[in-house]
Amino acid sequence: MSRIGSWLVLSFRLHRWEALASVLGTALLAAAMAWFTWQLRTLAAAEPACLDPTTYVVACEQSPQAFYELASFAEGLSSVAWVAPFGMGLVLGVPLVSREIEQRTAGMAWALSRSRTSWLVRRVAFAALVLVSLLFVLAITSEMQAAAQMPTRHLDQDFAWYGRRGGLLVVRGLAALGVGVLAGALVGRVLPALLLAAFASVLIFTVISLGMDRWIEADAVVMATGDPEGGRYLGELVDYGELGRRGLSIEVIDEEDRLFARPEDVGHPERMIGWGRSLIVPGRLYPQIVLRESAVVGGAAVLLALAATFVVTRRRPG
């Protein structure tokens, strides 16, 4: 057996339970997505004109019902796809170091390996390989399901299912892996490290998400509330001042685009005329925003990996 093959086999034996759990979870989810994709495509192919929102066909009044019911049910899977990178990243990442310390094998391994950094790189490389392979499958199946579910939309320029499909799943998984490895190295016990990593993931990704929203505000446009055509709502404008500021609820303006409502008018809809306005990131910016967030999350993953290396090279083996 080649050296790489032998390393893969040994690594799998060391992490067989978390690797098998991840493979099984991915297989179930991907299979379910593939089945729904097939079903949705079959239904859509039967009456293609009925799913076109720009046209109205009298005969279609009942026929898309089955499609939309199935699509609604299938949409739940996209939520699982959103959670999967975090779950798999933590399950694969946390035990890498913490189990070695907890089961007292770290002393032997770190003494045999002259460099703890190279020891960690080998371990993380296997977990990353498994994670990227599995999330790649999910990224594709979720894209396929999204395309089947929204057949009339151009999903390459649409924020629909943002973060629940495509390459972001892979990058987010790698960052979660970094959180898991770092938490495991810090705590040195699997279960407490898993809890810490879960909490830290929520915190880190919330901060990243809020930061990304702030960043893309510069690219946002103001538009009347309605169909954003693949755009992503950032917020609705409420400030009774300049339009550029981000607010919390609907601003009301008059026909001449001047502010109509005053603070005292809020809660009295009869006094308000005009229409709401929202901050929208246009759908055409979807690839750019995904790339930007991938770079940020990928950078976070690298920083987390460096921090984990720093901890591993300095901590006691248990």
Binding site: W7, L10, R13, R16, R104, T105, G107, M108, L112, R122
Partner: peptide, 26 residues
Amino acid sequence: GYVPQAPALYDGLSVNDHLDLAVHLR
């Protein structure tokens, strides 16, 4: 060469696997 207190081996590995692992590490 270091033998730690109460030597702990990897539960999921055989004796030969441990030797293979040592070759990878060193």
